[in-house]
Amino acid sequence: MIRVVLADDEPVVRFGVKAVLATAGDVEVVAEAENGSEVVDKVARHRPDVAVLDIRMPVLDGLDAARIIRECHPATKTLVLTTFADDSYISRALGEGAAGFVLKTGDPQEIISGVRAVAGGGAFLSPLVAKRVVDQLSRAHPRPLAARRIEVLTAREREVLGLLGAGLSNAEIAARLHVVEGTVKVYVSTIFRQLGVKNRVQAAIIAHESGIIPAS
């Protein structure tokens, strides 16, 4: 069972997200919070697998909460709830260690998929969020530049990056490529170092921007 702490300052949103997660069968919301400070305390108390965080919350916003959770409770992964109005927060969130982004107004199934992906050590971007981010990045870094950026990677490393960008965990990538999980971990570490990224979401953005996500 994937244990989740859910944080949003709007009770209706919390109710809706909790109801969606209840349909998953393998996800349990163990605590709720209405601000960033409260969610940090509840993560410390409950040690969940995933913290689902709204970006805009009083006292401490979701991105500051994500940073504190990453630093103090690294076993808990963070999935950010966002809206198109929150575009300006995306680059900051990448640096704060968020493992995924889900649109509040998107397909409810994406929330479940996002929780499962980040709980398993993967990264997750709602397709519309990914497109929005890639569009933004492409204005500053045209796609040909992104493609050149991954030229430092071997063909196998690019394959791993593409699967990582599709939201697969190390175990899922290993199964897809018929290798042991330890080998994938080595590939992922090398990819991070070669691309100069800090986390899976940053790597996933490059995968999307470069157009190497495999067809599902």
Results as ranks from 00 to 15, higher is better:
residue 2 I to W: 06
residue 3 R to C: 01
residue 3 R to V: 13
residue 3 R to A: 13
residue 6 L to M: 08
residue 7 A to H: 02
residue 8 D to M: 09
residue 12 V to Y: 10
residue 14 R to P: 00
residue 18 K to C: 02
residue 20 V to T: 14
residue 21 L to M: 14
residue 24 A to V: 10
residue 27 V to Q: 08
residue 28 E to A: 15
residue 31 A to S: 12
residue 33 A to S: 12
residue 35 N to I: 01
residue 36 G to V: 03
residue 38 E to H: 04
residue 39 V to H: 06
residue 40 V to W: 01
residue 45 R to V: 10
residue 48 P to G: 06
residue 48 P to Y: 04
residue 48 P to N: 07
residue 49 D to Q: 08
residue 50 V to D: 02
residue 53 L to E: 13
residue 54 D to Q: 12
residue 54 D to M: 12
residue 55 I to Q: 02
residue 56 R to Q: 14
residue 57 M to Q: 02
residue 58 P to W: 06
residue 59 V to T: 09
residue 64 D to A: 15
residue 65 A to S: 07
residue 71 E to L: 14
residue 72 C to W: 03
residue 73 H to T: 06
residue 73 H to N: 05
residue 76 T to Q: 04
residue 78 T to R: 08
residue 81 L to Q: 12
residue 85 A to N: 13
residue 87 D to T: 05
residue 92 R to I: 13
residue 92 R to F: 02
residue 93 A to K: 07
residue 94 L to M: 13
residue 95 G to T: 07
residue 96 E to V: 04
residue 97 G to F: 05
residue 101 F to G: 04
residue 101 F to T: 05
residue 103 L to D: 02
residue 103 L to I: 11
residue 103 L to F: 13
residue 104 K to F: 13
residue 106 G to Y: 05
residue 108 P to F: 09
residue 108 P to E: 09
residue 111 I to Y: 04
residue 112 I to P: 09
residue 114 G to C: 10
residue 117 A to D: 08
residue 122 G to Q: 04
residue 124 F to K: 06
residue 127 P to D: 00
residue 129 V to T: 13
residue 131 K to H: 08
residue 135 D to N: 12
residue 137 L to C: 03
residue 139 R to I: 06
residue 140 A to K: 05
residue 140 A to E: 10
residue 141 H to I: 15
residue 141 H to S: 04
residue 142 P to T: 09
residue 144 P to I: 11
residue 149 R to I: 06
residue 150 I to F: 07
residue 151 E to G: 07
residue 153 L to E: 07
residue 157 E to A: 09
residue 158 R to H: 03
residue 159 E to N: 11
residue 159 E to F: 08
residue 161 L to P: 03
residue 162 G to A: 07
residue 163 L to D: 01
residue 166 A to C: 06
residue 168 L to H: 12
residue 169 S to Y: 09
residue 170 N to C: 12
residue 172 E to G: 03
residue 177 L to K: 06
residue 178 H to E: 14
residue 179 V to M: 14
residue 181 E to G: 00
residue 182 G to A: 14
residue 185 K to Q: 10
residue 186 V to Y: 05
residue 188 V to P: 00
residue 190 T to S: 15
residue 190 T to H: 14
residue 191 I to G: 02
residue 191 I to R: 02
residue 195 L to N: 05
residue 195 L to R: 04
residue 196 G to V: 04
residue 198 K to Y: 00
residue 199 N to I: 12
residue 200 R to M: 06
residue 201 V to T: 15
residue 201 V to S: 10
residue 202 Q to G: 01
residue 204 A to T: 10
residue 205 I to K: 00
residue 205 I to N: 00
residue 209 E to K: 00
residue 210 S to F: 12
residue 212 I to W: 08
residue 213 I to H: 02
residue 216 S to I: 02
residue 216 S to M: 11
